[in-house]
C-alpha cells in the first residue's frame, strides 16, 4: 500500500512538474512574439518546415480520407435512399473533424518528431548551451518561431486537407458511385457553412500549438545522449497526438 502511494505521489509530482515547465515555456515563448527585433528568417524557415514540407502528406491523407468517407457513407445512406447526402456527410466530416485532426496528427508525426529530434540533438551536443553563452535567448531563438509556425501553418494545411478531402469525396461519389455532379455540389454548398470551416480552422491552430509545444518541450529538455534524443522524439509524438485528440473532444463539445 505504501509503495503504491509513493509511486502515485512520484507520478503526480512528475505530471505537475512537466505541466509547470510546459506552461512556463509557453508563456515565455508567447512573450517573445511581441518583443522586437523579430526573427523573421527563423520564423519563415520554420513555417516552410512545418507547412510547405507537410503539404504532400496532408494532400495524400486528406484525399484518401474524403474518398473512403464517400464510399463508407454511400453504403449506409443507400439503405435510406439518401445517396445524395454523401456530399454533406463528406464535407461536414472533413471540415469539422477529420481535416483538422488528421492534419494535426500527420504534422505531429512528420514535423513534430523531427523538431523534437533536432532540439534534443542540439541539447545533448551543447548547441543550446552555446546559444546561451553567446547571449542569445534559446527560447526566443528556437521555441518561439516553431510555436508560431505551428499556430500559423496548421490552419493553412487544414484548408488544403479540407479542399482535397471534399474533392476526393466528389471524385468517388460522382465518378464511381454515380451521384449526379450538380446534386453533389449543390448539397455540399447547401450544408457546409462558413462556421463549420472556421471551427475546424480554430481547432487546427490549437493543434498546431499543441504539437509544436510538445515537440519543443521534450526536445529542449532532453538528456542522456542518443537514447535521450530517441525518447524525446517518441514522447513528443505520443503526448502531441494524445493532447490533439483530447483537446479535439473538448473543443468539439464546446463548439457544437
Amino acid at each position: 500500500m505504501r509503495e503504491f502511494l509513493e509511486e502515485t505521489g512520484r507520478k503526480t509530482r512528475t505530471v505537475v512538474e512537466i505541466s509547470g515547465q510546459i506552461g512556463l515555456m509557453l508563456s515565455q515563448a508567447l512573450m517573445w512574439i511581441f518583443v522586437p527585433p523579430y526573427k523573421w528568417r527563423n520564423i519563415i524557415k520554420q513555417m516552410e518546415f512545418v507547412g510547405v514540407q507537410s503539404v504532400f502528406v496532408v494532400v495524400l491523407t486528406g484525399s484518401f480520407t474524403g474518398m473512403v468517407l464517400a464510399l463508407q457513407s454511400f453504403e449506409a445512406l443507400k439503405r435510406f435512399g439518401a445517396e445524395s447526402m454523401v456530399a454533406p456527410t463528406v464535407a461536414l466530416s472533413v471540415a469539422r473533424e477529420l481535416g483538422p485532426v488528421l492534419t494535426g496528427l500527420m504534422v505531429a508525426g512528420r514535423a513534430g518528431s523531427a523538431m523534437a529530434t533536432e532540439l534534443a540533438t542540439m541539447r545533448v551536443t551543447e548547441q543550446i548551451d552555446a546559444l546561451t553563452t553567446m547571449a542569445i535567448n534559446p527560447t526566443r531563438y528556437l521555441i518561439t518561431p516553431r510555436i508560431l509556425a505551428g499556430i500559423l501553418m496548421l490552419p493553412i494545411l487544414t484548408i488544403i486537407a479540407d479542399f482535397v478531402g471534399i474533392i476526393g469525396g466528389y471524385v468517388i461519389g460522382v465518378k464511381m458511385l454515380g451521384i449526379n455532379s450538380g446534386v453533389y455540389i449543390a448539397r455540399t454548398v447547401d450544408y457546409l457553412t462558413f462556421g463549420d470551416i472556421m471551427d475546424g480552422l480554430i481547432k487546427s491552430a490549437v493543434f498546431g500549438l499543441i504539437l509544436t509545444l510538445s515537440a519543443c518541450y521534450y526536445g529542449f529538455y532532453a538528456t542522456g545522449g542518443a537514447e535521450g534524443v530517441g525518447k524525446a522524439a517518441t514522447r513528443s509524438m505520443v503526448l502531441g497526438c494524445v493532447l490533439i485528440l483530447a483537446s479535439d473532444y473538448v473543443m468539439t463539445s464546446m463548439m457544437y
Binding site: 540533438t121 542540439m122 551536443t125 551543447e126 548547441q127 548551451d129 552555446a130 553563452t133
Partner: peptide, 11 residues
C-alpha cells in the same frame, strides 16, 4: 566566449 568540448557548432 566559450569553446565547448565537442565544439557545439550549429549543424
Amino acid at each position: 566566449g566559450m569553446l565547448f568540448q565537442g565544439a557545439a557548432l550549429f549543424d
